[in-house]
Write a protein that binds this DNA or RNA. Structure first.
Lengths: 335, 335
DNA sequence: CAAATTAGATTAAACGATTAAGCATATTTT
DNA sequence: AAAATATGCTTAATCGTTTAATCTAATTTG
């Protein structure tokens, strides 16, 4: 295994100290007064030997790794995959590398990932927080580790975050359905106390109260690891028992599973029930009929979270809490 | 910013050298003869101070980082996202962390990622190689850096790899269509010399030759960054000009875009044209009609590639080249 | 011309771990 | 009792950088 070229190799070949080499390669030749001749030769030899610095050594010395830890719920979920991609690109633009992990909405996994990443001295975190991980996040902020939460934040924990106007998004979507003449709008959501989910439910309840023609409202709730049968049970209940004429799903995954159940029950969209989903996907264009959905500005969400994180890493003080606007994309499924 | 606890802190508190502490915490107390009393106190203080080793320092000293570099085409693509997730889980099981990057099938980006990861001293790579990056991969193997290619390999470069039986998968799928009575089967693929794509095309051509009722065959080819218009042009050509009665897509992304075009042209599946896609997705279940597709054993692919990589990292010598079997999942779209 | 400044380098400590080698003291062996 | 071995630790080098502190010789200044 041919050894990597080190600063010392260059120093020896040029006949100077490693300090001089380091100065030159870090562009400090003026400030540190390295002679033009040495500068030239160092540069040349470095290129000849194809030198690139050992980032591990540099990290140890400087105490910074140029690495950010990304924790999402599941990288296989296209929503998070896409978000990860945007974050990756933005991070690379600034010379950062991303190490990632999936928490599965599981507080213990999330903690384990945090510890692993901390031991690897990441410079900061972008986290999609799971339920009950408030203490972990709090601990990070106490340790002054730069953190940005994305997609959701944790009540009572003062952190930077970037998220959607969830309440408003759902409120307006329900209002839209009602304005279209639908009267019994139901919702399917996760049984979760995470802020994004609660805000979505709150938006629904409020809209039904403000604009609904009657006192109807129903939110079917599922666990994160719900089964097809459970979803089918809820859909069946919504349609037959509650006789809903419109339905709003609280996430992408719920939309997918819910539509599957609706299809199995042979209920026609939007004639028998109108549907609006959360989070778009080009794939939804192929549903018959195409699905109306609430679009999140993913690009902005990812870029903003990286920007805020880098600002924090550079030492900026104040909290930054950003709420982004949704966009309601109307297709045939909502009549 | 409260400083991290180091070995030295423990050493000072217990009143011994850092060497002793290191031995204890690495379980070498027997071998290195550390007294039971010191062992006890070191353990206790370590727990008290909540010590975890600085992996950067350890990496520098040991020359290994317990990190693997993962390069996929695009983490936002569910196929790669899912693969990444499997690799992540398997890596974590063995104490490894994953840093990832997306190449966009672009050789230059891929090279830049490789260099970045090399500078970070990853212990090995799992790579979905792009076109024309043979030299890069070759260079890695020359440097004895452990590498496993996945999804595709590079002709002429002797590496470990894990991939699908692409030829066989397409051959059997086409044969299936023909046995169902379809006569003019067409294919849509990428214009790529990458082995997986070529094998898929070869399987198609061969099957049409062996089993086809006539001398017909047509492969429509697109660039990776194809537009909707280009796809529509090809679909239109296949249907009107070549009057195909069945169609096979070579990847997931092509299936999605192709089905979109078919829908826009108001061609009925499978009455006017039968369709088989590549790579499943639960989402395809919702297509009307549900899509038949060639399923890749993603789980096995991810796990195997990690296993092989770790074997290589541990110093195993021989080349490992694994070809996994596909599964043809039949739904309504293929008649 | 002596003193002060500047230019152009070097030295060596530091980051936080690992680990080969060494050094007392105590115990066992011949 | 001398030699050999065991026990329980410490010392110090090392990994590859960065960077504060020095040091020497040349140049400028008064």
């Amino acid at each position: 295994m041919p050894k990597r070229i080190s600063l010392k190799d260059i120093a020896v070949k040029v006949g100077v100290s490693t300090a001089a080499v380091s100065y030159v390669l870090n562009g400090l030749e003026k400030e540190k007064r390295v002679g033009p001749d040495v500068v030239r030769r160092v540069r040349q030899v470095a290129k000849e030997l194809n030198y690139t610095p050992n980032q591990i050594a540099r990290s140890l010395r400087k105490g910074t790794t140029n690495t950010i830890g990304l924790i999402v719920a599941d990288i296989a979920n296209p929503f998070f995959g896409h978000l990860a991609r945007i974050i990756e690109d933005e991070a690379i633009r600034y010379g950062y590398t991303v190490i990632f992990g999936s928490s599965d909405e599981d507080c213990l996994k999330s903690e384990s990932l945090l510890e692993t990443f901390m031991d690897r001295q990441v410079d900061g975190f972008i986290i999609v927080p799971s339920e009950g991980c408030g203490a972990q996040i709090e601990l990070l902020t106490v340790k002054k580790v730069p953190v940005v939460l994305v997609d959701r934040y944790i009540r009572g924990v003062e952190t930077n975050f970037v998220m959607l106007d969830n309440y408003d998004a759902v409120y307006k979507s329900v209002r839209h359905l009602i304005s279209k003449g639908y009267k019994r709008v139901a919702m399917v959501a996760y049984r979760s106390c995470l802020i994004h989910m609660e805000e979505r439910k709150r938006g629904y309840i409020q809209a039904m109260g403000d604009c609904g023609p009657g006192p109807f409202s129903y939110v079917g709730e599922l666990e994160y690891n719900f089964t097809h049968e459970e979803m089918e049970g809820i859909i069946r209940k919504i349609i037959t028992e509650y006789q809903a004429d419109a339905l709003l799903f609280a996430t992408n995954a719920l939309s997918v599973a819910g539509l599957y159940a609706i299809r199995e029950l042979q209920v026609r969209i939007p004639d028998e029930i109108a549907v609006i989903g959360f989070d778009g996907s080009e794939v939804f264009d192929f549903f018959d009929p195409p699905l109306s959905f609430i679009r999140q500005p993913l690009e902005e969400m990812g870029k903003t979270s990286v920007q805020i994180l880098l600002d924090q890493i550079r030492g900026e003080a104040g909290l930054k809490q950003v709420i982004l606007k949704h966009q309601l994309v109307l297709r045939e499924s909502s009549g």
